[in-house]
Design a protein around this nucleic acid. Structure first.
Length: 291
DNA sequence: CTTGGGTCCTGTGCGC
DNA sequence: TGCGCACAGGACCCAA
């Protein structure tokens, strides 16, 4: 589910509930996620103060005051929902609903955290591909979760020379290469398809065979599509919700993703959006204007 | 080393 | 209505 724009939207929504606040209550419910919770997970969080809430690739990082960082990944179906304690409240640009008594008691609510904002944060993930763990802040960059990650596509380090170099010698189709987190940290299936469409590049083209000029277009397309998606609050197809519970909006702006059989949105193209499977994932593209 | 396929898990939507 | 299959925003692990 959540790719970079969705995780970034969730991050922004969590900031008022977490940053500068203290965990007053944490509990894990029903079973393990993809990775078991670390020893004394809840105990190690309670009483801790969150210095900053950051994002790296598709991970949320809550930097705590005792040298550990709470790491959260939403997997395919994870959600973080913030509820205001007491009554509905506006924090930042989000309005948090009052916490209903059943919040946190759903079948797939795995973690409930309360802070002195005061707020209740519920982590829900019916597929349990998500992850929550604690990692030493000082050495987090060397952790296996983060060690190999490529550059952040919205940072200054992401430019055409970087991408060209990162794709050099890759014998895989460009679409697959874009999904490789060692190349671009945070890229996912939707935005890889959308960016390739915008850049006019066929997803089947071998990564190492994409011309420099096209790489230039692709870098701009990636930056723009991710930025626009963040502005729209991410894309809600099935499970994804913003942290206030509302839907994102960017799914209405897809050019090709999930639009098999529809006309290519490019003016005068006349092509039809096609769906193929690459490395086990759906790819949507226009065979006429993506070359 | 790189690359592709299978796998984890639950839910939903479709064709028959 | 019901059943079975395909598929879903991710990312490990392992074989070739």
């Amino acid at each position: 589910m959540p790719e970079l724009p969705e995780v970034e939207t969730v991050r922004m929504g969590l900031v008022p509930a977490l940053e500068g606040h203290r965990f007053v209550h944490v509990e894990t419910r029903r079973g393990d996620l993809r990775v078991p919770f670390p020893q004394d997970f809840a105990k190690r969080l309670i009483g801790r103060h969150v210095r900053r809430l950051l994002r790296r690739a598709k991970y949320l990082l809550a930097e705590l005051d005792h040298g550990e960082t709470l790491v959260i990944h939403l997997g395919m179906s994870g959600r973080m929902t913030v509820y205001a304690e007491g009554k509905e409240r506006k924090l930042g640009q989000y309005v948090y609903k009052e916490s209903p008594p059943e919040a946190g008691h759903g079948k797939h609510d795995h973690v409930v955290m309360e802070t002195d904002a005061p707020a209740r944060i519920v982590f829900t993930d019916h597929r349990r591909f998500g992850l929550m763990t604690l990692i030493d802040t000082n050495t987090i960059d060397n952790d296996k979760l983060f060690r190999g990650l490529g550059v952040e596509p919205l940072s200054d380090a992401f430019d055409a020379p970087y991408l060209f170099d990162a794709l050099k010698g890759k014998k895989t189709p460009i679409k697959g290469a874009l999904l490789d987190q060692r190349v671009i940290a945070g890229m996912g299936n939707i935005y890889a398809c959308e960016a390739l469409f915008r850049a006019g590049i066929s997803p089947k083209r071998l990564a190492s065979k994409v011309q420099k000029a096209s790489i230039e277009l692709l870098v701009h397309a990636i930056r723009r599509v991710l930025t626009q998606a963040i502005k729209a609050g991410g894309s809600s197809l099935r499970d994804y919700r913003k942290s206030d519970g509302d839907l994102g909006n960017f799914q209405h702006h897809f050019a090709v993703y999930d639009r098999e059989g529809e006309p290519c949105p490019r003016k005068d193209c006349g092509g039809t959006v096609k769906r193929i499977v690459q490395a086990g994932r759906s790819t949507f593209y226009c065979p006429i204007c993506q070359r």
